[in-house]
């Protein structure tokens, strides 16, 4: 067994026993955002595209899943699939429009589109509940048998989906397709001159990323039985950038660590006397991260291990 296998085995064991020591809903929140950040990292870290509109996929998937569960009585599995499909379709539209531009313009196009989605969500109260959010979403029962109202059952379900999503991203990154993405990220003109129609690969990466981001949003809706305007707000788009950078973009585990750190901080600060200072603290961390350790937590550990052994 090599070191990586041992590391993953330890992490899995910890994840399995964690809900007996830590509040399960908190853990589930971490996992949902970890899925979101892993999806985002596929685009930023492995394709070199900075999207500033990923909250759209996260939030819209949540709204669709919530509506299907609450108003249409769909089984939970299908409601999740519907949310994910909505994110995929929205991702195709966003991606198709945005990949024609690069760099900052790409980010601006995604932000503009996401703002449009946000204001549609504000207006479409019949679908989103407007300012109140989409509340009272039933969690349902897995396969009609396992009652997900039990936090522990839901936790293991979410953990299983997280592992699948994590594996999927890992597979994509190490696949032949992932190698093409890295080539495009490293030297786009060169990839073109070797005959690659790079827009096609960027679009595929964008859609995959949006789809998995939607999965995170759909699960979050089930955990909190709620999707609100916060989930489609640009603030959430920024948060996922922060999680990815803090954890280490372009590393497999980085986004998970980043999501864990940020969610923990938010929870910790929100319950104390500093509740209103969360954005200040996060902003401070962001600055320190960008100035002092650009490779992120996992990236720095990687570099340290490489230097020392």
């Amino acid at each position: 067994m090599n070191r990586t296998t041992i590391l993953y085995a330890v992490l899995l064991a910890l994840a399995l026993v964690a809900p007996f020591g830590v509040y399960p809903v908190f853990l589930m929140k971490v996992l949902c955002f970890a899925i979101f950040a892993c999806a985002f990292n596929l685009l930023l870290g492995f394709t070199g595209l900075l999207s500033f509109g990923h909250a759209s996929f996260f939030g819209v998937a949540g709204y669709v899943t919530g509506n299907m569960l609450r108003d249409y009585g769909w089984p939970v599995e299908f409601a999740i699939l519907a949310g994910v499909a909505a994110a995929a379709i929205l991702g195709t539209v966003f991606g198709w429009l945005a990949i024609r531009r690069t760099g900052i313009y790409f980010a601006m196009v995604t932000l503009a589109l996401a703002q449009m989605v946000y204001f549609v969500c504000v207006q479409a109260e019949w679908f989103t509940g407007g300012e109140n959010g989409l509340q009272g979403v039933p969690r349902g029962a897995l396969l009609g048998v396992i009652d997900l109202n039990n936090d522990l059952s839901l936790y293991y379900f979410i953990l299983a989906v997280f592992i699948a999503a994590f594996w999927f991203i890992h597979r994509t990154v190490t696949s032949p397709f992932g190698q093409v993405l890295k080539a495009v990220r490293e030297n786009e003109p060169r990839a073109i001159s070797l005959g690659y129609n790079v827009d096609r690969y960027k679009l595929m990466s964008f859609v995959l990323s949006a789809t998995v981001a939607g999965l995170g949003g759909a699960l979050k809706c089930i955990v909190f039985q709620l999707t609100s305007l916060t989930d489609v707000h640009w603030y959430t788009s920024g948060e996922v950038v922060l999680m990815t950078l803090l954890g280490g973009m372009g590393t497999i585990l980085g986004p998970v660590v980043g999501a864990g750190t940020i969610v923990t901080l938010q929870n910790y600060l929100a319950s104390g006397a500093f509740a209103s200072s969360v954005p200040i603290v996060l902003g401070f961390i962001f600055v320190v991260c960008v100035m002092a350790f650009r490779r992120g937590i996992v990236g720095e550990i990687h570099a340290f291990v490489k230097r020392s052994f």
């Binding site: 696949s175 992932g178 093409v180 690659y196």
Partner: peptide
């Protein structure tokens, strides 16, 4: 690219 191994994101490296 010549071998057509470019879009398979589900295949192992």
């Amino acid at each position: 690219r010549k071998a057509g191994l470019t879009t398979q994101f589900w295949r192992s490296g």
